[in-house]
């Protein structure tokens, strides 16, 4: 029996089973419309849902939102605009009957912990996106929730701001001690902050595993793209290989490569020191990505629309089955 056992359905949106223990940070990823936000809102009791979410033996689904003992960080923060940062953070303790002075003291501690202690008297309108999100995280953590829900906390932030917030969030979550559910569309969040990844696709759980498993053996195109892997599917059999393992030729290769496809270059983008090609293979074959050196690209004149052959050696391919389906 895990600390958290969930089996719930938001009709028409998402249906998911998963379990977690204290200390787990579960990243919830998937394309838009996969049901990520619906899942989190269902756990919080903010959308109608059926099923069970057992946390320490209590079924949360039978409780109103306010009794579920959650911390929620919303995508657009939803800081109360009429209260300053400190009173926003103090709101939870106040609602639970803590005295004003005590609640404010705890709020100040959490604001300092999140690095925004000096902004305690600012209203949300006077905070930047990153500052507001820190206040929102402090507000969610101040009530010592057992379950913390974060709905795309990094979205809408500048890249630099998101990076530093991600590092801090990872630190706070590792100290948190409860269970965190982090909705994200960023592979970095999933790989750096979480110890479990829940992949949603079309309202169903496509994969649930460690970041390593999910990034090495993705079962959905969405995750494959997120982590930059080529994944070829044949029934339940999946084969994954790195873009760097792909060889690009202008004529059909004759060597030992077992896997080869004809196609056209559909996109060329810089990727680190290399160039990343997207090759649309003929006969509705898979869309593959290949990393080539700029020198090779020049030599082969790899421009948009160029007909090429791509191939990969069997030794570079990981074969696995999709066990969750």
């Amino acid at each position: 029996m895990s600390d958290l056992d969930a089996s719930l359905e938001v009709p028409g949106r998402v249906s998911a089973d998963f379990a977690a223990d204290r200390g787990d940070v579960i990243a919830v990823i998937g394309p838009n419309g996969a049901g990520k936000s619906s899942l989190v809102k269902a756990v919080a009791g903010l959308v109608p849902a059926t099923g069970r979410v057992t946390l320490d033996g209590r079924n949360l689904m039978e409780l109103p939102t306010r009794e579920r003992g959650l911390g929620v960080v919303f995508q657009d923060q939803l800081l109360f605009p009429h209260l300053d940062a400190r009173d926003n953070v103090a709101y939870g303790p106040r609602a639970r009957g803590v005295t004003r002075a005590d609640a404010r003291r705890r709020a100040d501690q959490w604001l300092s912990a999140l690095g925004v202690g000096d902004l305690a008297h600012r209203r949300p309108g006077q905070l930047s996106g990153g500052q507001a999100q820190r206040v929102a995280i402090a507000r969610a953590l101040v009530t010592d929730p057992t379950l913390l829900l974060l709905d795309e906390p990094m979205s809408g932030l500048d890249v630099g701001v998101a990076t530093s917030l991600r590092i801090e969030l990872a630190r706070h979550l590792s100290e948190f001690g409860g269970i965190a559910l982090l909705v994200t569309h960023d592979a970095l969040d999933a790989l750096t902050v979480a110890n479990r990844v829940l992949v949603l696709d079309e309202g169903k759980v496509a994969q649930f595993g460690t970041p390593h498993e999910v990034s090495q053996r993705p079962v959905t195109d969405h995750v494959a793209r997120l982590v930059g892997l080529n994944v070829i599917r044949a029934g339940d059999e999946l084969r994954a290989f790195e873009p760097t393992a792909v060889t690009v030729n202008l004529t059909e290769p004759t060597g030992s490569a077992r896997h080869r496809w004809a196609g056209r270059v559909a996109a060329v983008t810089p990727h680190g020191a290399a160039l990343r090609l997207v090759v649309r293979t003929a006969d509705n074959g898979p869309e593959l990505i290949a990393d080539v050196t700029p020198e090779a690209a020049t030599e082969l004149e790899l421009t948009l629309g160029r007909s090429v052959w791509v191939s990969v050696k069997e030794t570079s391919v990981r074969a696995y089955t999709n066990r969750t389906q």
Binding site: A44, T65, R66, L70, V72, F80, Y91, A95, R139, A140
Partner: peptide, 19 residues
């Protein structure tokens, strides 16, 4: 949504209404 945010913070409906 602000009412929802207040509920997640443990506020009763009446408390959220007032505050």
């Amino acid at each position: 949504e602000y009412d929802a945010a207040a509920a997640t913070l443990g506020a009763s409906r009446w408390h959220a209404f007032r505050t």
